[in-house]
């Protein structure tokens, strides 16, 4: 397994830190990304994302937030013609290292999509999908994980009586929480959320936001959002992107109270974007 060295470095690196939260858990350095040689969507980005905190990416459409997010677990690999410069380290491990197994990376850095895509399987099978593909089929273990994951995603009480019914019958909010349950089932380290609430009503959104606040005790969460209020409600740190550049990154309160850049201020006050 090629992710073993990464874990080793993590265990050796952690005790060296003064606090138990690693402030450079995800370390992006001079990162640029092109879909095609002509289209450069990320320009020379450097940032640090701390462990066990919620980091929000905000910015107008097309500014590259989602592209950066999708680089953290290399989902962009699926698109032909891409290229990048610079480095991204997750927990001390360079993710573009050719020796690194993408599949192992994706197990550690899980993505939750804007539009939830439940598999055409039962609720139970949806939750344990990542375990099944990892070859874990122990029934009692799976049962336990289903319960803890669904509880973790605040969905248990609603679905515990119909675990073996199709997941396609769930409502939008339930489906999104199911994909969170599915994402946390195999104990990832990072959760990437790409506008997880954009298709949800306010009540479902509130539930998911509450959930995010709970999740950060166990996971490092990065959330892309178009909703300023959501960013202030759920995140500890916020990064503002504009046209492929990261303009500013700071504690969320700081960004929203006294942004250093006029562009950021314009955006968060709604005068632009």
């Amino acid at each position: 397994m090629s992710n073993e060295p990464a874990e080793d470095s993590a265990t050796t690196a952690s005790p060296a830190l003064p606090v138990d939260s690693n402030p450079e858990y995800i370390k992006v350095r001079n990162f640029s990304f092109n879909y095609t040689p002509e289209v450069r969507v990320l320009k020379n980005i450097s940032m640090d994302i701390p462990e066990n905190q919620v980091t929000a990416f905000i910015g107008p459409s097309g500014c590259g937030k989602t592209t950066l997010l999708r680089n953290f677990n290399r989902m962009n690999d699926l698109i032909p013609g891409i290229s990048h410069e610079g480095t991204i380290h997750v927990n001390g491990r360079e993710i573009f290292d050719p020796k690194l197994e993408v599949i192992a990376l994706r197990k550690r850095v899980r993505m939750i999509f804007q539009k939830p895509n439940p598999f055409p399987k039962s609720i139970y099978e949806n939750v344990v999908y990542s375990l099944r593909i990892a070859g874990k089929n122990n029934k009692s273990l799976l049962d336990e994980i289903v319960e803890t994951s669904l509880r973790g995603a605040a969905l248990w009480d609603e679905v515990k009586d119909r675990l073996h019914e199709s997941a396609l019958g769930l409502s939008g909010g339930q489906t999104q929480r199911l994909s969170i349950a599915h994402a946390i089932a195999n104990m990832p380290e990072v959760l990437l959320m790409d506008e997880p609430c954009s298709a949800l009503d306010p009540i479902a959104t509130a539930k998911v936001e509450e959930l995010i606040a709970e999740l950060k005790s166990k996971f490092t969460v990065i959330i892309v959002t178009h909703n300023m209020q959501q960013a202030t409600r759920v995140s500890d740190r916020t990064a503002y992107f504009y046209l492929g550049e990261m303009i500013e990154m700071d504690d969320t309160e700081e960004i929203f109270r006294n942004p250093k850049h006029s562009r950021t201020e314009k955006y968060i006050t709604g005068r632009f974007g």
């Binding site: 677990n73 989902m75 699926l78 599949i103 192992a104 994706r106 197990k107 899980r110 993505m111 999509f113 539009k115 895509n117 439940p118 598999f119 055409p120 999908y129 990542s130 099944r132 593909i133 990892a134 994909s179 599915h182 994402a183 195999n186």
Partner: peptide
């Protein structure tokens, strides 16, 4: 749908696992 494939790949499935478990049944 591409989304279902991505969801499977994002769960750490290999390409063949995705085809076998998600794409082919669908």
């Amino acid at each position: 749908p591409r989304g279902v494939r991505e969801a499977s790949l994002a769960a750490g499935a290999s390409k063949w696992q995705t085809i076998q478990r998600i794409v082919l049944p669908a």
